[in-house]
Amino acid sequence: MANRLMNGNEPPPILTVDKLKTYFFTDEGTVKAVDGASFAVRPGKTVGIVGESGCGKSVSAMSILRIVDDPGRIVAGEILFQRADDAEPVDLAKLDAEGNEIRAIRGGEIALVFQEPMTSFSPHYTIGNQIVETIQLHQDVGKAEARNRTIELLRMVGIPRPERRIDEYPFELSGGLRQRVMIAMALSCNPKILIADEPTTALDVTTQAQILDLLREIQERTQMSVIIITHDMGVIAEMADDVIVMYLGRVVESGPVDEIFHQPKHPYTQALLRSIPSIFAEPRTKLPTIAGSIPHPHNRPAGCPFHPRCAEFMPGKCDRHEPQLRPVSASQLASCFLYHEPDI
């Protein structure tokens, strides 16, 4: 199912997440942060994972990198990563989270860009120091060469006067520049996949435009795959090739970006698109809303997690059985009983 995007002449996905379950075992009970998520990342393409708070989009990313903190654990599923073109894929979910193999992949072959760049840097070292360290951790190069590469990277992400900026401390940079440095650090080891977790949420809209442009430009140049995680449908529309819509730990719909925005299949996707404030709206018009709010992860509804808020709720079906992610068109998958009958 996860290989749905393959057709004759297309290369296999570089990353395939299959029925991933990451649970958090807290004192108050088990939180199923990710509950059976499946998706694939094509080489050189951008996957957008979109959803509201508690949908499990960030935990999915953390699971891929195996940086899920206690009391969280991957309890089931596969994360197949194609390290080399001709090799067997590695199942990241099976690796030792502290082991050498995942350490080489994390930050090297799969890099991460966080929402808040300030907290992801150590305040005590210059930005140059931290990038040089990352480069030397993953690659066998001398200090001088690593420094030159760092300056090159900083220039590439559009930092003015990188020879001087390299010796500045994180607090001396503005939010936009810090995010650029963060991206430079992520790119330092030529990753195959870049995971960007809400990369522009903390930024102003004009700075956001700069960073999104930068990400797109870098991707064109390096042909890496990008997983962009956001709650902002606008960012998804601007950036993604494929879209994964998540709700309460599950993928409710996935497909190419144009289909998701123009022929959404799942009632949640449809309602979400209708309810987001748009810059094209007539002034002072009311928006269609989704009733209620997102349930607390401790009381996730039975059956389809969206059924209490769903306009198409079918009693006896949606609240009793869990829908599966199934093909609903040539290119889209959706998890909804409007499109398939419950398996009994």
């Binding site: 809303t289 009733a291 209620g292 709010s293 349930p295 607390h296 009381n299 509804p301 209490p308 808020r309």
Partner: peptide, 10 residues
């Protein structure tokens, strides 16, 4: 009810 949280307190 269309505005209320169905799933808030159970």
């Amino acid at each position: 009810d269309s505005q209320f949280d169905h799933a808030s307190i159970t």
